[in-house]
């Protein structure tokens, strides 16, 4: 029977959420948490011999040490395959899964597999290096994820030929692989054209190279005369989040008045962001949206003025499409209001 070692974070091991993200790596014999679903899918073909659990913060903050510890843990079991995750849309978990899977593959020379939502930052970082199965954006998609990951896992463990991304469910990894479609190419072309003509969504079989490059504007001629606006994806909002901007996958942005406000304080502002530790941002929201410093600059004549409103949203699992739509809308307002330059802050 094939042996599998499974890597999960503190949340999926039922240790706790963000507040327990500091727990160091530990190994437990057999199945923990989502491993059960994998084990059921593997049946008699493979066995999860051990589960390694590590807090997301611990992993990312003690990178080298954590990597070495975990590699040693994996090595002990001499498995045929290493599975990390699935991490869905959890950014740090995704990055940890990708990092450790790649390290295990490189150090121990065994096949590895992870699963993530396509907008998880870990996906872009690792999809070209290891097989990353495309999952839904939350743990509610576990069944679907296991259904795709388990067959690919077995193929990898057995050293069988892996098919095209469209067949196997992994994210396109820059390596084109042939496979047979259900319909011939001309029929697929006709179907695609009908969709395109009717304004329906269609999927090209070969995406052109990414053309989304933004050339920087020329430098501001005289910054001492410039009207500057603040825009952030760090989720800073008036306390109480009056417009209910979502903590993840934001569908909206807010526009708030800072006329006369010299300093953002804990009393009046906070972050709505659900993807990072909010403690320091809430203690002093200027850390994310630097109103205090800009007011000083304004007073000293280093800049012309600060725009009366700031724009804010939550950049946590938020679709690029949404972000683009937000900016397209408020960029027009900024222009209409005579803003010369924008400082964009992220987290």
């Amino acid at each position: 029977m094939l042996k599998v070692v499974h890597y999960i974070n503190q949340f999926f091991a039922n240790i706790g959420g963000e507040e327990m993200a500091h727990v160091p790596a530990e190994v437990r014999e057999g199945i923990v948490g989502p491993g059960l679903a994998f084990q059921q899918a593997f049946g008699e073909e493979a066995e999860i011999v051990a589960t390694i659990i590590c807090g997301d913060s611990y992993f990312n903050e003690n990178l080298e040490e954590a990597k070495q510890t975990i590699i040693n843990m994996v090595k002990k079991y001499s498995p045929d395959l290493f599975i990390a995750g699935p991490a869905f849309n959890a950014g740090r978990y995704g990055v940890a899964c990708g990092t450790i899977a790649m390290a295990v593959r490189d150090e121990l020379n065994i096949p590895v597999l992870s699963g993530m939502y396509r907008e998880n930052p870990g996906a872009d970082m690792f999809k070209n290096s290891i097989y990353v199965v495309s999952t839904k954006n939350s743990a509610a998609g576990m069944r679907d994820a296991v259904k795709k990951m388990a067959p690919l896992a077995l193929k990898l463990a057995k050293g069988e030929k892996v098919g095209a991304s469209a067949e196997e469910g992994y994210m396109p990894n820059g390596k084109r692989v042939n496979f047979f479609e259900k319909e011939r190419g001309s029929r697929r072309a006709v179907n695609m054209l009908i969709k395109k003509l009717n304004g329906k969504e269609f999927e090209t079989e070969f995406p052109m190279p990414d053309f989304d490059r933004v050339d920087p504007n020329p430098a501001v001629k005289d910054i001492t005369k410039a009207k500057i606006a603040l825009v952030t994806s760090g989720g800073i909002v008036p306390k109480g989040n009056p417009d209910h901007i979502e903590s993840s996958s934001a569908s909206k942005y807010g526009k708030y008045d800072i006329d006369g406000i010299m300093d953002l304080t804990e009393a009046d502002f906070a972050t709505a962001h659900g993807g990072y530790d909010p403690v320091y941002a809430n203690l002093d929201p200027d850390r994310v949206l630097p109103v205090d410093v800009l007011r000083e600059f304004e007073k000293e004549g280093k800049i012309g003025s600060i725009h009366r409103y700031f724009y804010t949203t939550v950049g946590n699992g938020t679709a690029v499409k949404n972000s683009k739509a937000f900016a397209e809308e408020f960029a027009k307002e900024l222009l209409a209001d005579g803003v010369d330059a924008v400082i964009l802050t992220s987290t």
Binding site: G174, M192, E205
Partner: peptide, 25 residues
Amino acid sequence: AGRDGSSQSLADADASADAVVTGGN
């Protein structure tokens, strides 16, 4: 796209070619 499938597939490209059917590598 090369024998390992990782090279550029076409000798020319344009963003307007957003609907492509491929006969394989």
